[in-house]
Amino acid sequence: MYEELADEGFTVITVGIERSPEDARPWIEKARPQHPSLIDIEHLVPDLYGMINVPTVVWIDEEGRIARPNDASFASNRFKLLTGLDSKRHLRRLRAWVRGDAPALTPSEVRKHQDLPTAVEQEARAEFTLAWWLSREGHDDDAERHYERAGELAPHDITIRRGSMRTRGLNPMGFAFLKIAIKSALTRTPLYRRIEDSPA
């Protein structure tokens, strides 16, 4: 994808929302990307962009403006069965936008599809910041209360809840995540927030 469009004034920037560069190293070294592959251990990008899960993609134009806001999309269909997300449609739209064959969204469409952060979500992020600092200082037991509080404040913020599982000795692929997924299905709160595609 990147190689195909790099000559057309396009780049990918990946941001790994991880505990340390070492968590992302195997992925990045395997992919050997030519584009910037960054590590965000403080969850700065989720905070700036109001992201509540990964993967989340944003299209940004040549002037640094948001051309398509937060959307859940995988790079391949490996997880389609689990997530219901079809990556092909997103890639087709992206290719058309990069090549100038089709516009992205209009500014008013971008605004319509944005979920702006709430006060409670920002409080959950602050609790996460505090918990994460305590974890790194070796106070795991005392961090737990703040991770829990963050999860109570923003139960839909999977970036915080699942992203902190390994630090807390929980398996992000195991029962702890299954519980979140079941709760999300029961409350009809989507785990992955996607922009509904209009018929192409």
Binding site: T11, I13, T14, V15, I17, P55, V57, I60, T159, R166
Partner: peptide
């Protein structure tokens, strides 16, 4: 920096290993 890519279209991808 994101701003270092000004003049290009950018696909910003946030992902994680978890």
């Amino acid at each position: 920096s994101l701003s270092g890519q000004r003049g290009k279209k950018v696909l910003l991808v946030a992902y994680a290993s978890w």
